[in-house]
Amino acid sequence: MVTLLENPLLGAPDPAPARLFNAGGQSPFLIVGDHAGNAIPQQLGTLGLLEADRMRHIAWDIGVYDLGKALAQALDAPFLFQHYSRLVIDCNRDPYHPDASPAVSDGIVIPGNAELTPDRIAARVAAIHAPYHSRIAAELARRAAAAQPTIFLALHSFTPTLDGTSRPWEIGILHDGGDTRFAEALLAELIARPDITVGDNEPYQMDATDYSVPRHAYAAGMPYAEIEIRQDLLAEAGGVAAWSLTLCLACKAALQRIAATGAGS
Rank of each mutant, 00 (worst) to 15 (best):
Gly172Asn: 15
His133Trp: 12
Leu153Asp: 00
Pro160Phe: 12
Gly172Thr: 04
Pro118Met: 15
Asp119Ala: 02
Ile173Ala: 03
Asn113Val: 14
Gln148Pro: 02
Asp200Leu: 09
Leu186Phe: 06
Leu155Cys: 05
Ala154Pro: 01
Thr150Met: 13
Glu139Thr: 05
Glu189Lys: 02
Ala185Gly: 09
Ala127Leu: 14
Ala126Val: 07
Thr197Leu: 06
Ala185Phe: 09
Ala127Met: 06
Glu202Ser: 11
Arg167Lys: 05
Ile171Asn: 06
Leu116Trp: 12
Ala208Met: 08
Ala123Glu: 13
Ala141His: 13
Ile171Cys: 08
Thr165Arg: 10
Ala154Lys: 11
Tyr204Gly: 00
Ala183Met: 10
Gly112Asp: 07
Ala185Tyr: 15
Pro149Leu: 10
Thr180Lys: 10
Asn113Gly: 15
Leu153Lys: 03
Ser157Glu: 00
Val125Arg: 09
Asn201Ala: 03
Glu139Arg: 12
Pro194Thr: 05
Arg193Ile: 00
Thr159Met: 06
Tyr132Trp: 13
Ile196Tyr: 06
Ile196Thr: 13
Leu153His: 01
Ala137Met: 04
Gly178Cys: 01
Ile151Pro: 09
Ala126Glu: 14
Ala137Ser: 06
Ser134Trp: 01
Leu190Ile: 00
Arg120Ser: 02
Asp163Trp: 15
Ile121Trp: 01
Ala144Gln: 15
Ser134Ala: 09
Trp169Asn: 14
Ala123His: 14
Phe182Arg: 14
Pro168Met: 00
Pro194Tyr: 04
Phe182Val: 01
Ala130Pro: 03
Arg142Ile: 06
Ile121Pro: 09
Ala138Met: 15
Ala144Gly: 07
Ala141Phe: 03
Ile191Trp: 03
Leu116Arg: 12
Asp200Val: 00
Pro168Asn: 11
Leu187Glu: 05
Gly177Met: 14
Ala154Ser: 06
His129Phe: 13
Gly177Asp: 04
Glu170Trp: 08
Ile171Ala: 05
Glu115Tyr: 14
Asp207Arg: 11
